[in-house]
């Protein structure tokens, strides 16, 4: 028996989401008294995993394949899961994690549960708490299958160190019979993505136009934050789709969410509610966001934000 976790990486280094999944997996393995088996692809910096108590790492060489390949990755995970008789598998809630999770579940005859926000409330049958109705509620879901694949909401468990030494093994990279092929990837490599970010700075229609986005970007730069926007902002093409957050956009579960010139419509709040601390800067004291936020400033973004950015910059130096 074992718990299997999928370690996402970028250029050979495990991502924070991968380390969080390892931490969470360690706790599950301890609860079951079994070992924690990690699966990664082309990891060079795998010593990082020792810090989080991984017992065994299958480090799979993709033979020059540089892109995430859903079919081959999911097959590799399923094969390891079968080999080590995994009862639980954990993936992150990143775009790739949520992509691979349901596929691995079918391949291994497991139940799949997404948006998991904490350790199981019960083992055997496994029961976990998950968000639903886009963060407007939670539910307790129980598995009716022996094996379960969980997708852990980012930042919901955090990083918990438990030093050990992982035995590093190589693993098969299965061939794919499927026609799907990645042709190219476009990615802003110098930018923090919303899924990975501890802090997200978000702008709404109150910023008046794309030419004013330096306000958002400068603040995000100082904080090492990702940038996001409300739906109308991306609908009008001020910002790209990938920045649209909310009920019909990306979910945000950062430690800090700063909303600037965003009114706080129910659909926007639904998607960002899982963030731990919310700050609003809005000129209208009646804006609904003030009801959802922890901290707020009633003021003009064009005056408040540059001062905030300057003061944070000075503080960092």
């Amino acid at each position: 028996m074992a718990v299997v976790v999928y370690i996402e990486s970028e250029n050979g280094t495990p991502k924070k989401a991968g380390l969080e999944v390892a931490s969470y997996g360690r706790a599950l393995a301890d609860a079951h008294g079994v070992s924690l088996v990690a699966v990664g692809f082309n990891l060079t910096d795998h010593e990082r995993l020792n810090v989080f108590g991984v017992d065994k790492l299958y480090n799979i060489d993709t033979q020059g394949g540089v892109h995430f390949d859903v079919e081959r990755y999911s097959e590799a995970l399923a094969q390891v899961a079968t080999k080590v008789s995994a009862s639980l598998m954990v993936v992150s809630s990143s775009a790739d994690g949520r992509y691979i999770g349901p596929i691995v579940a079918i391949k291994t005859d497991a139940a799949y549960m997404s948006n998991v926000v904490g350790l199981p409330s019960q083992y055997g049958p496994l029961q976990v708490k998950r968000t639903c109705f886009t963060n407007k509620a939670f539910n307790e879901t129980q598995s009716t299958k022996e094996r379960v694949v969980l997708s852990l909401s980012s930042n919901s468990y955090g990083l918990h160190e438990k030093p050990g030494t992982a035995e590093v093994l190589s693993g098969d990279y299965p061939v794919s019979s499927n026609s799907l092929k990645v042709e190219s990837v476009e990615k802003a490599t110098d930018k923090v993505s919303i899924a990975d970010a501890d802090i997200v700075v978000s702008g709404g229609r109150g910023l008046k136009g794309p030419e004013n986005w330096h306000l958002i970007e400068d603040l995000a730069d100082v904080l090492g934050a990702a940038t996001a926007c409300s739906k109308p902002v991306s609908d009008m093409g001020w910002r790209s789709h990938s920045e649209h957050v909310g009920q019909t956009g990306k979910p945000v579960a950062s430690n800090l969410y700063i909303a600037i010139g965003v009114s706080g419509a129910i659909q926007h709040l639904a998607g960002i509610n899982a963030s731990k601390v919310k700050v609003v800067i809005n000129s209208d004291p009646e804006a609904p966001f003030f009801k959802a936020a922890d901290y707020g400033i009633v003021g003009d973004a064009f005056e408040v934000v540059p001062v905030l950015t300057e003061k944070l910059k000075a503080r960092m130096q």
């Binding site: 939670f138 539910n139 003030f290 901290y295 707020g296």
Partner: peptide
């Protein structure tokens, strides 16, 4: 493969701190 046992609403949050 699974069943929902119970639903729950998030705890009410306190008022915003204005600065």
């Amino acid at each position: 493969a699974s069943k929902v046992q119970a639903f729950e609403k998030p705890a009410e949050k306190g008022p915003v701190k204005l600065v």
